[in-house]
Write a protein that binds this DNA or RNA. Sequence first.
DNA 1: TAAAACATTAGAGTTGAGTCTAAGGTCAAG
DNA 2: CTTGACCTTAGACTCAACTCTAATGTTTTA
Lengths: 149, 149
Amino acid sequence: MLKISEIAKKTGLSTHTLRFYEKQGLINASQRSEAGYRLYGEADVRKAEFIRTARNIGFSLDDIAVLLSIRLDKASHTCQEVTDIARGKLDEVYEKITELTAMKATLEILLASCCGGPEDATHCSIMEALDASEAKQQSSSGNTATNEV
Amino acid sequence: MLKISEIAKKTGLSTHTLRFYEKQGLINASQRSEAGYRLYGEADVRKAEFIRTARNIGFSLDDIAVLLSIRLDKASHTCQEVTDIARGKLDEVYEKITELTAMKATLEILLASCCGGPEDATHCSIMEALDASEAKQQSSSGNTATNEV
DNA sequence: TAAAACATTAGAGTTGAGTCTAAGGTCAAG
DNA sequence: CTTGACCTTAGACTCAACTCTAATGTTTTA
């Protein structure tokens, strides 16, 4: 059985994070020592690694909680439940990429329009663009990021 | 002179947000009524619109504070100061897009590998991939998002 | 046996950008 | 002269995922 710092080293999750995940109901030490120390077995290590893998892919802790409950009893869950989670995440990712791509385009246009030199900013085209009002919708959740300059 | 709800309507910023921006030192009403009501003039409106435009592009409030200080006295600031801010933001955006693109690729591979049907998840290839450990680095700040499945 | 290195807990703090609340003051309309 | 729509403030709350602290107990090592 591993102590918390041992499983931490093995899985790359910090001891803080492991205790935090326990509070969130994701993972428990399967035993405690007489003194109350958490003791983790092989199955716990695999579970922690599952969590880390899912987290690294980008799943939220809420998603991971659902994935773990499926993992616990695969026979009574379907592939569709699993793909629903993945597809939900993928949709989020698409949306964020769209937003960021709009920001990127805007910033590149702004940067291309300005000399960027030691000249004073009196006629800086970036400042002018920002002052031109006409601010397009963007950021704050789920709109088609159409932001021109 | 406009009351706060009037400039709010005009600029698309909420009254809460305007007061919050005031606390952050971004914008002040240029006058107060006898009763202490904020009163905004034309210059305030233009400043609020500048802020909204910059925010919509994706600049942080800290960036905006700097941009506003440049705007206040363009003659004693350079184009380079302005492009430094834009380039900094653009770098952030690039980094986030890279991360998200890695997530996207991983999720697409996972989704392609799984039937997604009503079959039970006993042999679900997504669950298998998550259980395969081998978790690649990703997310948490600034690493080359190489995440395979 | 004493110090260093671990472990425990509850709970507070961090980040960024708001969002909301409570408790009150002001103003225009009917 | 009251109702409702506005305005004020300080300060708490939200989200996500940690991260850290303090105060204390345990184990290991020199």
